[in-house]
Design a protein around this nucleic acid. Structure first.
Length: 276
DNA sequence: CCGCGGGCCTGAGAGC
DNA sequence: TGCTCTCAGGCCCGCG
């Protein structure tokens, strides 16, 4: 998409989680993508029109990218070129021959167009916490965000205002790496006097490590996630606790067994022995 | 501010 | 084979 122009945009239903913007396809057609980016879980395309196209995958959304010459490739590109499935909701036909299909069975994803000068003040953007892989993110920043929070550490890390971009899997995995209990009150990792605790540093490091490892592995394909070429990610094979209830804790010398509990209606997986 | 329950959707898997 | 039930990577709302 980067540097290419939208030649034709197929919008195949009126809404996803939210209605599409008015005249969505016509507002894209003829515009060029002058930059691509990401903030938290939002995919961003900076357009020549002065607008930003914001795209969210929800739970089950995925993009696939193929080029015209690849369209007849067998198997994994089946839903491109006149063979769209029921859940292929948007297709971008780009000036460089790329065809980009957005598929989302559950339709928890959405797309919006935001004027660039209003982007930073947009309610979806303004409240977001720091990027966990940014240079500025560290134990001190995490401690400050958790200070005074009476909620659980699990809920705090899942809150996009505390740190942006973590979902259920990576919260569980980061807490295990930091040997911190998901049930612990969030404020207890914050500060001791003025200095951030050792726990906050361990947790910030655990978050960075699990995200970097997962990105390297192409993400976690439990059911819906696919890479843009249609391939599966394989980080699910490296989960230490997620979806491993009843298995032995992978921490060296730990005799614990992974447990599943429910926090805020979501599953949490953790080791009650080495996560305190 | 916080926890909880319900809601938005479809599909996969388990149990019967 | 087919039914019903539960659960799923996100996130919002309203209630108490």
């Amino acid at each position: 998409m980067d540097g290419a122009r939208f030649v034709r945009v197929e919008q195949r239903r009126p809404d996803l989680r939210f209605p599409f913007p008015n005249n969505f396809n016509k507002r894209l057609e003829g515009q060029s993508v002058i930059g691509l980016g990401r903030r938290a879980k939002y995919l961003l395309a900076d357009l020549s029109s002065g607008e930003v196209l914001l795209m969210h995958l929800g739970m089950s959304g995925s993009f696939r990218v193929v080029h015209g010459s690849d369209e007849d490739a067998p198997g994994k590109f089946h839903h491109v070129r006149g063979k769209l499935t029921a859940h292929d909701h948007v297709v971008f036909h780009m000036s460089n021959g790329a065809v980009i299909t957005f598929n989302d069975p559950r339709r928890f994803g959405y797309m919006r167009l935001i004027a660039r000068e209003e982007f930073n003040q947009d309610p979806m953007i303004e409240a977001l916490g720091p990027e966990p892989l940014g240079n500025a993110f560290d134990g001190a920043m995490l401690a400050a965000a958790c200070a005074g929070k009476k909620t659980s550490l699990k809920a705090a890390l899942s809150d996009q205002k505390v740190v942006a971009g973590l979902g259920n899997i990576y919260v569980c995995e980061a807490l295990h790496r930091a040997h911190l209990s998901p049930k612990r009150r969030a404020s207890t990792i914050a500060t001791r006097g003025a200095a951030p605790t050792e726990r906050a540093h361990l947790l910030a490091d655990g978050i960075k490590a699990v995200l970097n490892d997962a990105i390297k592995a192409g993400g976690s394909s439990l059911r819906d996630h696919r890479r843009t070429d249609g391939d599966l990610g394989y980080f699910q094979h490296s989960f230490r606790v997620y979806d491993r209830a009843g298995e032995k804790c992978p921490t060296p010398k730990c005799k614990g067994t992974i447990r599943r509990i429910v926090q805020g209606t979501r599953s949490t997986f953790f080791c009650p022995v080495c996560q305190k």
